[in-house]
Design a protein around this nucleic acid. Structure first.
Lengths: 364, 364
DNA sequence: ACGAGCATTGAATCAGCCA
DNA sequence: CTGGCTGATTCAATGCTCG
């Protein structure tokens, strides 16, 4: 399955073999909604990371050796973050997960390149491995950085859905979730774990429900055994995976083939009022739900009169329902919809009820 | 009180007026056991922020937190970390606290200079300020980096003391502690907060109990109102504070003068009570214990379907497990946990069983 | 004295559309 | 691109007032 964007096609729901930087550079720019990346953490640079050159002086002391290693890791980080940024849509965003070994370097480079950090999110593991030697704190968390492509990116954030996931309380930057074990943990032919750092599907579920919409394209440049792809498929999103190791690709293919998408009704999530159509106050007057000259009441009993053009006049102040409300309260702003009430059969009813009435007519 | 180290004297238990870099450069090298630093975060705030009730948030807009660019902030960070490293004993260590605005840059520079990161420790705030506009996750944590002066530093780590503080369980890298409020929060003559970012004593208590011994010398280059000094004195450690602002120094002096060593009451502050952890229903969905689209059954056999955000839809009503249950019963409220069952092997099982399962994982 | 209820507050990179 | 207007949005804890 592919989507065309200008001349180039987007290889949706496939796992691409290759180096993620080269592959991303071959994709059309501004074509991806979200990137989720779980880059290598290790600084013991094996063959897979881009070495700067072989100019390492002999008999370097530890400090220089560290510096050269960090330098190589930084070059690698710079390169893939740059390639990632090019293919992100202007309103796209990125998530990167890491530990203290690498996350500070990744975070600094994100900022250097102009990504705009939105939150750092702590994955607090409910069942971490203990520190056996008792020399440090149990390493019980990993850090994710969530950043928009630019400071001005209008990133996707499904606030209400996340609040619902958390039973009505807004979602915090620390998430308590167990590590990936049991049946979810993929095994190879020998019964050993197929990948050393397989992420739990619960983690990706929360990321994708919160930061994407159905039909969005999610790219994972370090696909591994495909947790991102599996959860994207479940949630009715499209994915693009990039992975160089044939063994991981094979496991991921098989895994994702088995996944079934949740049914459409189940994929609907709670939406914010912001997503609902705007109804101008004037429409209530035009429709005769409120009549010119009719009185509206503030919470403290002040009165304003409705005018034919949908403005109010009260206390010598004329203006919109919001402006007059703000003036009466001496507040910088005011939501007139929830501020004003009108009288019906002697009872005071919020004008927002009338707006809801119009909205339900529009949708139904 | 001073200690002599070679020729130079160490100004113990005093607050030094001046720029922290210059002052540290004037201290003898390799003379300090621990540094605790709470540097400016470089918040880069733009306009005003109001709460939904229209009250204005008192932002951290102090002059000392302003930097012209990341480059300027990096130069500042480089300079003070270098000065700090020089005065640390070979087996000394440093703690730095920050948020996503600055901590990645600090962490990368620590690594660049040869400090050896031991843990990143997450301070999870039990009572953070919410995200008022619903545009991001509640910023509910700050990050501390704990690093040895060198890779080879034999740093102090009081494993057993921390385990005791944690009711017999190994201390993890995430600490749940409240922010500094109430009587602990220092006020100026006008009754306003004396410092915009005063840290709680419980935080410093845990750091100092875990990473120093009685008699150790702890230096804080951004002393502020002196939480580090106050807790050091309580715990029988020596401190050196550096602070440029006369107003902060004055408050800190007065505060520390009042502190008595081994204040029992203060010790108890850090021991947290364990309540039964709250488990949101959404977590059952994220973790795959219940799948979106799956049916739940009411006692009278009515059916509702689970959605991806942990809400239910049944009989055209959407909402939490509690709300939909209450609606079906025509009741004002309903405990969804005991109300709903799911089917497993043909048998109906209360969803509360799944919650218990999660709780036992969390505590075990 | 005690409890209910209301006001206050905290390291915050906190809007989006249309003219 | 700017300016102006609409209108969406909060959790935990402390301390004070009032009955």
């Amino acid at each position: 399955m592919t989507k065309t964007k200008g001349a180039a096609a987007l290889p949706l729901n496939t796992i691409i073999d290759g180096d993620c930087i080269e592959v991303m550079n071959g994709l059309p720019e501004a074509s991806v909604d979200l990137i989720f990346a779980d880059p290598p953490y290790n600084l013991q640079l094996k063959g897979d990371l881009h070495r700067p050159d072989n100019s390492r002086v002999d008999a370097v002391d530890d400090e220089w050796d560290q510096f050269s290693s960090f330098k190589a890791y930084d070059n690698f980080t710079k390169a893939w973050l740059k390639a990632a940024r090019r293919i992100l849509k202007p309103d796209g965003a990125i998530w990167v997960i890491g530990s203290y070994h690498n996350i500070f370097r990744v975070g600094a480079e994100l900022q250097n390149q102009g990504y705009w950090i939105l939150n750092d999110v702590v994955w607090r593991k409910s069942n971490p491995m203990p520190n056996f030697r008792g020399k440090r704190f149990t390493n019980a968390h990993e850090t994710m950085i969530w950043a928009g492509r630019d400071e001005s990116s209008k990133y996707t954030f499904n606030y209400e859905a996340l609040k619902a996931l958390n039973e009505g309380i807004q979602m915090r930057s620390d998430w308590v979730l167990p590590i990936c074990t049991g049946h979810e943990r993929l095994k190879d032919e020998n019964g050993d774990k197929a990948h050393p750092t397989q992420k739990p599907e619960s983690l990706l579920h929360r990321v994708l429900v919160g930061a994407t919409n159905p039909g969005d394209v999610i790219l994972d440049p370090f696909f591994g055994t495909g947790t991102t792809g599996a959860v994207a498929k479940m949630l009715g999103r499209d994915f693009i995976g990039i992975e160089r190791e044939a063994a991981y690709r094979k496991v991921a293919e098989k895994r994702i083939a088995k996944v079934r998408k949740f049914d459409r009704e189940a994929l609907q999530v709670s939406v914010s009022k912001r997503a609902e159509p705007r109804v101008p106050f004037g429409q209530l007057v035009e429709r005769g739900m409120l009549r010119p000259g009719e009185a509206l009441y503030s919470p403290r009993g002040q009165v304003a009169k409705v005018r034919a053009d949908g403005t109010l006049i009260g206390n010598d102040v004329k203006g919109s329902i919001h402006q007059v409300g703000a003036h009466l309260e001496g507040a910088p702003s005011c939501n007139g919809w929830t501020y004003w009430t009108f009288k019906q059969d002697g009872k005071k009813i919020p004008i927002d009820v009338l707006r809801q009435q119009i909205r339900s007519e529009m949708s139904g």
